[in-house]
Design a protein around this nucleic acid. Structure first.
Lengths: 358, 358
DNA sequence: ATGAAAGCGCTAACAA
DNA sequence: TTGTTAGCGCTTTCAT
């Protein structure tokens, strides 16, 4: 193994000079620097991560805590994870992947063993047991997601948070539909399990949806659904039964998107002529759906990138900046249109078979 | 920060004794061990990862190289990644996540910086540029996937591989269908990009499919498809045009599963009465599809687990064991049945519209 | 069964 | 601008 001492010897300088060339922490004359750089290249030297960590108390590693609980849409998690690692690499950091299995213990392990310099925490619950440990930890942490419904809540104190402004996102969906004349809207939400364990983003979306619905005089029905065809079918059936005049749907459930579109097609409800559909999902899902969806995009990449940049800043001495919410962006596509003016808005058109009707 | 020296002082023993209690590498009298353990608990001591790595040249970290190239089904990758991390944890290892961005450079980085003890490499291509570096590396590596079409090929020398036996999996699908009387089968494969870059598993599946088709006198059509409704529709249309008598489909493309089923439904082709469908996909996809699919399952968890266990074995001194292929398991579900005996097998039944017919 | 002590490879004062 | 040196916290040989 090639050590720093080897390089120093080869270049005819002292070890510290080599170290300083590497870190750039003091000025080196051009000739020496070049000579040392040449030795480094020739010998194929790489600093030993452990030795560096021991001497400098910096590992250049970020820990990514990613519990994968039921009901979460895996590709989004993955996209965040990938954005985190690539952004981290571009700042010279590696990423240690931690699953949820260990729970709060993982936080203590990272802290106690100095195995990483900082942590990114995903899938934050309202009363997340990791939070107390994160607050006490000497290392900075950034949450992707909010532990509480409101951005400035006490629970967030001292912790940096990055997330989509799901409340605004929900509101944006209703506003868009209200603008098209829709007054009866149903929401197909995340699976029940997601709400039950108090996942922040789902609750916040609902808050935004309801507030906007009130403001615009829109009637709102909310149904959590599992991402299966059967569950979606059952939920939609109930919706049209309980409120036949429904002309628009908001979907916040990536796994339910295709089942929903297939179902509507099968029922002979045309999108957007009979029913408008707005989704809250990644652009990729919206674009590739069998009907391109008008949607508020969930900016997975950006969230990952922001989290890392925040963390890198903190490690460079910046102060915590609290919560940073990404403003929602709604892109109109083919799935929404004005509410039908003449035809009865709730009955499928005549030449299609369907279950609707009042 | 609590150090080993602190613990030693607190327990009234030497540092080495504490170290040996931790590693179990020499026998300690019960009283001393208990006293030391008590001090460890009281002080909340955790060994410093960097210091340990420096002194022992072991990091207790496994690197997971997971390029996420187009056409890959993300949830499978994720499931492997999760299985890797949880299995790794159960053996005392952490996992460092590396994306494909860096390519072969990542291998050299891990090797040179002693940042991990071993590596798991995913998404291996036929002529993967990482392979030469992996072979030269001092650290053991396990590939998930095969770099070549045949298990014993030269390219694999010295490297451990773990994978599903995709060749046998392909064969198994054809055998199942042949057993039900089907003689004209079409394969909807992975996206073209996957074949083009020479991904081993796709090629191997095809080999197995073709061999079995030959053996059983089955006519086989192969169409790579992107996982979109439009692409699937186009491919299926071509299939029934070119070979109207087709009565069964094999799908090796998770993203295409639902679009395919929706399309068949829409065309009025009943599954399995008019068309049998066999998939090669994770159980979860097969079970939750809108028609529960007869499928050869892709055992993502097991692959991740096996890879880690192999690696842990190697780190404990075991010799490389070469390639280990997991035998395919086909589970019959609702999507396959005997080829229709009386009715013309290629035309949809009368009350449905369809494009088939000879 | 336990202790003493020499590093592991690097960083960062402190000197010159 | 460069060199000298004292650790960082742990493992492990060599003694006892």
């Amino acid at each position: 193994m090639v050590t720093l001492a080897d390089v120093a010897r080869h270049a005819g300088v002292s070890a510290s000079t080599v170290s300083y060339v590497l870190s750039g922490k003091r000025s080196i004359s051009a000739p020496t620097r070049e000579r040392i750089q040449h030795s480094i290249d020739t010998l194929g030297y790489r600093p030993h991560a452990g030795a560096r960590a021991l001497a400098s108390s910096r590992t250049d590693i970020l820990a990514l805590m990613m519990p994968l609980r039921t009901g979460l849409y895996v590709p989004v998690m993955m996209e965040i994870a990938m954005a985190v690692t690539t952004t981290a690499r571009s700042h010279g950091y590696d990423v240690l992947l931690l699953t949820g299995e260990e729970g709060p213990e993982a936080v203590r392990r990272v802290e106690g063993s100095a195995i990483a310099d900082a942590m990114i925490v995903m899938d934050v619950g309202l009363d997340d047991p990791r939070l107390p440990w994160l607050r006490e930890a000497a290392r900075p942490a950034v949450l992707i997601g909010l532990p509480t419904e409101t951005a400035d809540a006490v629970g967030t104190r001292g912790l940096d948070c990055v997330d989509l402004d799901f409340e605004a996102a929900g509101a944006r969906c209703v506003e868009h539909l209200a603008g098209l004349g829709h007054t009866r809207v149903a929401v197909l939400g995340e699976p029940p399990a997601v709400y039950e364990r108090g996942t922040g983003f789902a609750a916040r979306t609902l808050t935004g949806l309801r507030a906007a619905a009130d403001r615009h005089g829109v009637g709102l029905l909310h149904r959590p659904v599992d991402g299966t065809y059967a569950a979606v079918a059952a939920a939609v059936a109930r919706v049209f039964e309980e409120r036949p005049g429904t002309t628009a749907l908001v979907v916040q459930n990536e796994a339910a998107v295709e089942p929903l579109l297939a179902l509507l097609r099968h029922q002979g409800r045309a999108v957007p002529e009979d029913v408008s559909v707005v989704a809250i999902c990644p652009d990729q899902v919206a674009v590739h759906a069998s009907v391109p969806l008008t949607a508020v995009s969930v900016p997975a990449r950006e969230m990952g990138r922001l989290a890392v940049e925040r963390l890198v800043g903190r490690l460079a001495g910046e102060e915590p900046r609290g919560t940073e919410l990404i403003a929602p962006r709604l892109t109109p596509r083919a799935s929404t249109g004005p509410v039908a003016a003449l035809a009865s808005p709730d009955a499928p058109t005549e030449d299609r078979r369907g279950h609707g009707g009042r």
